[in-house]
Nucleic acid binder design. Structure first.
Lengths: 199, 199
DNA sequence: CGTTTAATTAAACACTGTTCAATATAAAAA
DNA sequence: TTTTTATATTGAACAGTGTTTAATTAAACG
């Protein structure tokens, strides 16, 4: 078969990312197969290389999709949140990871060698999550704080991330931890409380 | 070639773990190859399956070795530590990960499906790290604390781990974070300070 | 010594990711 | 409309991988 016109370039790209994302959700990063994605999309392997340049390119696009869905979930929860928006964030962080363990883990299992080579659209989609958290951290802090808020927000994300990754990977289950979300939230609250008083 | 007697079973096991650990340090988890380990050890692939039952068994043994080396490094630093033993711990955590990024990452990249099936010796080697931290957390807290110290220690480990994994994976570098160790230590100190006062 | 037992291998199988010449077809030019 | 050009698509080839298993050979035992 030679040139086809079943899909526009944009449609084809979308199709591959969608099928790839589904496969990732089904089997996870270690069992992920580019050939299988092509098979499901009704194209042959080479097409992935035409469209994304490499398998890494497809994987990056799949993970970016996960980032976007994750950010949407956080926004959704913030919109429905009561007073305690920080709790909504932390719970949303965990909830997404636990409801989508395989796609969520894939984000961290796929090491991007030179991250500068990520397409603009990918970088943007990924940054959103950080921005959402930053907004809420600003909101939780006194106006006249002398903290580097961006840096502080990243540190709180890292704190929650550490707890969350232990849960999803199963290390915490082994240690019979019953309330990892609670622990993560405790650490975040402790830190925020101190910085709220300090002003 | 049939049965050989170049190594005792124990020696052979040790040889494979050692070669495997070296290979992991050279190429990292994604490029790791059981066949290559066997090649370097001068045996054929099947031997790995004789000795460890599966490739996962070898990987578990390799990662356990990393845990043991890591724990040794922490103990070494604690022995030479001044007053601030918590800082020694956090710095030791990061230092080991940054000096051994590939073997350290492999610990978290190799998902063990049913962790109950880890050999006793592996479980023991891995638990040591947690115990070291627990000891120091007890030391840092008032005697009459009503905290669940084991659980609290795990939470602090998760906090540091979150920061550390961002550094090693390169996510923090991208965000121009200059002092992740400092951030992690800040979060740990904040929490400890509160729990020191609370008594 | 012969027999049993166990370690070791090589080959086979079914997969991977990646590259690339051949080709069929859509788009452009005549 | 016909011819030409450009390109999207494929399928095969290559070099790997993990895993299983029958055959082989050497050690251990009686």
């Amino acid at each position: 078969m030679g040139r086809r016109s079943d899909h526009t370039p944009a449609q084809l790209r979308e199709l591959l990312v969608q099928q790839g994302h589904e496969l990732m959700a089904e089997v996870g990063y270690p069992q992920f197969s580019g050939r299988e994605v092509a098979r499901r999309a009704g194209y042959s392997v080479g097409t992935i290389y035409n469209v994304f340049g490499s398998l890494d390119g497809l994987l990056a696009a799949i993970n970016t999709r996960t980032f976007v869905l994750w950010a949407q979930e956080l926004r959704r929860r913030l919109d429905q949140s009561g007073e305690d928006r920080i709790a909504s964030l932390v719970e949303g962080y965990f909830a997404f990871a636990l409801e989508n363990p395989l796609t969520w883990s894939a984000i961290y299992e796929h090491r991007v060698a030179e991250e500068q080579e990520l397409p603009e659209t990918d970088i943007e989609g990924r940054a959103t999550l950080t921005l959402i958290v930053e907004e809420e951290v600003v909101r939780a802090l006194p106006e006249n704080t002398d903290l580097d808020v961006a840096r502080y927000a990243r540190s709180l994300i890292a704190t929650v991330h550490g707890h969350c990754s232990y849960v999803v990977s199963g290390s915490f289950a082994l240690l019979e931890e019953t309330d990892p979300v609670g622990s993560a939230l405790d650490r975040v609250r402790e830190s925020l409380r101190l910085h709220q008083l300090q002003a």
